[in-house]
Amino acid sequence: MAEALATIRRVEGMGMITLRGALEQIGPVVSDVTGIALPECRKITGAGDRQLGWMSPDELLCVMPVADLPAILAALQDGLTDRHALVLDMSDARVIYDIIGAHAEDVLAKLSPADLGAVGSDDLRRSRAAQTAAAFWRIESGFRVIGFRSTADYLGALLHNAAMPGSQLAPR
């Protein structure tokens, strides 16, 4: 019996803060508070469970364990009081899945039209998985995928289906 292309794991206990504003104004504060270097266009910085992602010319995403979130959220709001900025706890609106395994890229390639060959180790790629918005970046042995909590079951089902044993893309 063939093995699944990759292990799909729903990641719990992570928090996300969305920041919007002019990045040249809010960036230094965000970097100070989180202790993570500011990501350049389309990049993600930091490591492990604390990361900072570039979402758009006026949006950053801060990912951290949910236990650390209240302190970081308060520090960000405090640090940005004198600047035009949005700081919002988006944790409840999001879901995270990890795709881990030798054929993790195949799983994602079936669902997203993104050119995965062009996604480097420090890239944050916003795209879609079938009919739902998803963003992903490379982690050890695979990808971390974030999506909307409202379509979490759909995204999970897609990923499990795309990882079906014996369904890798390269010729056997």
Binding site: C41, R42, R125, R126
Partner: peptide, 12 residues
């Protein structure tokens, strides 16, 4: 031109 990504039309 805002983020520099080249993607196919269904992402737009």
């Amino acid at each position: 031109p805002c983020c520099g990504i080249t993607a196919e039309e269904t992402e737009f």
